[in-house]
Design a protein around this nucleic acid. Structure first.
Lengths: 354, 354
DNA sequence: AGGCTCTTGTAAACCGGTTACGTAGGACTG
DNA sequence: CAGTCCTACGTAACCGGTTTACAAGAGCCT
């Protein structure tokens, strides 16, 4: 066991050629006669040579590494996103550096600054709150490729990948209206965020399209968190809302809201219908199984990586915006509103609403 | 906006000193008279200089980066672990590279090999299956620091951090026995794994300690996956098992098992008591809320990082093994076995078993 | 004045790759 | 036979930091 790890020059000496020859040969930038090639290969094997990545990075000016900035990987939604990103990155030969921003502007900016240096080749940026502009500038100043994923950061020049939130709101709204609801509540994310606005707009489109007299009552906005969900539910109940159904804008909010509804004995869907958004948590096993809009999380992760890498390779992707398709998963948490006929309460999804 | 990013030599020239002076000054390895220091600081600011990380890494031979090898980040258990690891690493000034092994030996070995080069300073290794020895050798050959986390890899020389699985099995077993169960089933993880063996041993200890005549019936072993959970439940049911309670060895297995139990109308806990392990999923909201052994996931992640970094700093940590304390969270999925008195069916945890 | 130690700084050698440019020798060409 | 091309490599200049070895001048002592 040698104490020292082999360098390129060791291999070159053993193979009796120059370092340039070895380097170019190993990087397939040079054809060599079989005999020389064999000598090099033998020397590589003998020394158990692997190129030093730091040297390689410095020399090439890149590291074949991407960074993912995400509010919190413990959150199952971001965990899934991260898994998809990692998979696609690995497949394309890139490593992935994970950066948890904990949803604070300060840490987001820190990461942007650090990564912009040239620690990584590109950045996938997922934020979870409205930007006051102090994110836009550092991102645009970054010399690296950046793709915005999942939630918009206004004013950033560069590609974006979202799920089709508007369509999600629309599908949810249409379903509720079809089921007979005429007064719908909305437990939303932060008010200033695009995802929130888009989902609300989708509900409105569904309402307009239905031609029915449907009202959105008690729309609450706040963080994508169980706390906010609890607060929504509490305010909803104490307001004596007349809404018969509620669209809950994320799994996290849902978890908090259900806790309160359950505590207060609000039966779902008998007394109140609920429809979720994200569909990451094992909602099949909830009581009742939750009808939900499913976000195309895997696809989002993969598309973001793919775009980023294409950008690194020189393609012009700055103006790409993608809206990936959501899906309505029918389970048991939406029924006809109380007081109406309870026929056909149970329906099954044609796709895979287990 | 300069097209070129500033280098150390640019700063040096502007400050009218040599690069060495700037470098040492910036790394606090040199006291300078106020006037010179100010000149350098001014030059740094003017050029918006940040050291090139690749060059720094090459020169220093380290990258202040750790790697986390984990079967699958989409799995909430590993997601939580990853979050804890990232947080602690960030706090100590290290970046984190994420590597998903997808639980395949091949990818695990690939990662070990790649990372051993010197891409990262240290590795936290989490596997999820029994090793046939082909992991042990590359890990031991690695020039980097490695800490084994969560699941043992036999024969590896180095520090380890586990949860106290034996104690988890014991707490679960004791609880079931106290509730009156005399025939207990075990839906385990892979048979050859330490975590599985330890949990089983814990149940046995509880049985021995109780002095009662308690039997472990229908112990099934397999992957930590919903599929395995479904299979366990199906075999359990078709075998007409006499067990009145089952210890389910992970959230994932639980999710699969509950699916089958629910489908077949097995009421929990009336007909069958279940107790989980991990307690990551939002089991509070399940029907019924699940009693579970909670693993100290955050602590595990942080301890692993802390150990690793201490090792990198030269401390001798090779023989450290830590077993972090688990906790029994009482909720509603364990009752007295059918046929017995149903008194005191509901109990609350003294800690925080909400 | 000569010899010391500090202070402040420099020049140059690393770290370990990649690559632009060059060249020696043989084959082919007109 | 000179000119040209191709093969098969070698030399040395990068990439951008850190650090060792060393020096010039200042202050101080004897």
């Amino acid at each position: 066991m040698s104490t020292k790890v082999a360098r390129l020059s060791d291999v070159a000496r053993t193979a009796e050629v120059s370092v340039a020859t070895v380097s170019r040969f190993l990087n397939n930038r040079l054809q060599l006669p079989a005999e020389t090639a064999a000598r090099i290969r033998r020397a590589v094997a003998e020394h158990e040579y692997t190129p030093n990545p730091h040297a390689r990075n410095l020399s090439l000016g890149r590291s074949e590494t991407l960074a993912l900035v995400v509010p919190d990987i413990a959150n199952p939604y971001f965990a899934r996103l991260a898994a998809a990103v990692e998979r696609e990155a690995a497949q394309q030969g890139y490593a992935l550096t994970l950066c948890a921003s904990l949803n604070t502007l300060q840490r987001e900016r820190e990461y942007i600054a650090r990564l912009s240096g040239s620690a990584v080749d590109g950045i996938i940026f997922v934020s979870n709150h409205a930007d006051d502009g102090s994110l836009r500038d550092p991102i645009n100043a970054s010399s690296r490729g950046v793709v915005i994923l999942d939630e918009d950061v206004a004013g950033v020049i560069g590609p974006r990948v979202f799920s089709d939130n508007e369509q999600g709101g629309y599908l949810a709204g249409r379903h509720l209206i079809e089921m007979g609801h005429r007064s719908i509540s909305f437990f939303g994310g932060p008010q200033a965020m695009r995802s929130t606005e888009a989902r609300l707009a989708g509900i409105r489109r569904a309402i307009a399209e239905s031609g029915q007299d449907v009202a959105i009552r008690d729309a609450f906005f706040g963080a994508y968190s169980p706390e906010h969900g609890r607060a929504c539910a509490a305010r909803f109940l104490s307001s004596g809302s007349e809404a018969t159904a509620v669209l809950v804008s994320s799994d996290e909010i849902m978890i908090g809201a259900l806790e309160i509804f359950r505590r207060d004995g609000i039966r779902v869907p008998d007394r109140l219908s609920v429809i979720g958004f994200d569909d990451i948590a094992p909602f099949v096993l909830f009581d009742p199984p939750l009808t939900s809009i499913r976000q195309p999380v895997e696809m989002m992760g993969r598309r973001a990586v793919d775009l980023l890498i294409r950008g690194l390779k020189g393609e012009d992707i700055d103006s790409v915006i993608e809206y990936l398709p959501v899906e309505l998963i029918l389970r048991g948490s939406v029924a006809h509103p109380a007081g109406r006929k309870a026929a056909a309460t149970k329906r099954r999804s044609p796709n895979r609403g287990e």
